[in-house]
């Protein structure tokens, strides 16, 4: 494993990545970075560019769905504003279902830069093969398949 927190794997038609992190929040951040890397390989290099931030809120049935729905929400904002988001600060992150809704949820400020053109036009983040779990070393990891 490299230290960037994600790697690109093989898939016949689409794009599969593996992401990991010592905490769930770190896993979510690394998965976001993986997605940004697919959208624009050089997204993180251009440090001089003006940062764009956006607040998002996501609620889902479980942790795996929360990750996919989080990435989907980021992708939606990314596509609408033509911004590659490569970082997130979590304002709230509940990993146990709330008593009222039975759902897990997060609130985040995502950060990115405007791009002239995406390298890859990601259509969607799929639930296919996604499963957030801890490996024997205690690191949270999952695969994620993007439809491109």
């Amino acid at each position: 494993m490299t230290d960037q927190g994600f790697e690109i794997l093989e898939h016949t038609a689409d794009l599969r990545i593996k992401a990991w992190g010592k905490t769930k929040e770190e896993l979510f951040k690394n998965a976001l970075r993986g997605m940004a890397y697919v959208q624009k390989e050089e997204a993180r290099i251009k440090k001089q560019e003006a940062r764009i931030t956006k607040k998002i809120q996501v609620k889902s049935t479980d942790m795996t769905a929360l990750l996919i729905d989080f990435l989907s929400e980021v992708l939606t904002q990314s596509q609408i504003d033509r911004v590659v988001f490569f970082d997130a600060n979590f304002k709230a992150f509940s990993d146990t279902p709330s008593a009222d809704s039975g759902q897990v949820e997060l609130e985040a400020e995502i950060e990115g830069i405007k791009v002239d053109k995406f390298d890859e036009d990601i259509k969607a983040v799929t639930y296919h093969e996604a499963e957030v779990k801890q490996n024997p070393e205690g690191v949270y990891e999952t695969k994620i398949v993007f439809d491109i």
């Binding site: 769905a65 259509k123 969607a124």
Partner: peptide
């Protein structure tokens, strides 16, 4: 294009719940 991708994303999520 993005319109169709988002419709699918929205409704897959709805159906899962």
């Amino acid at each position: 294009r993005g319109l169709g991708h988002q419709i699918a994303t929205d409704y897959i999520r709805l159906m899962m719940s």
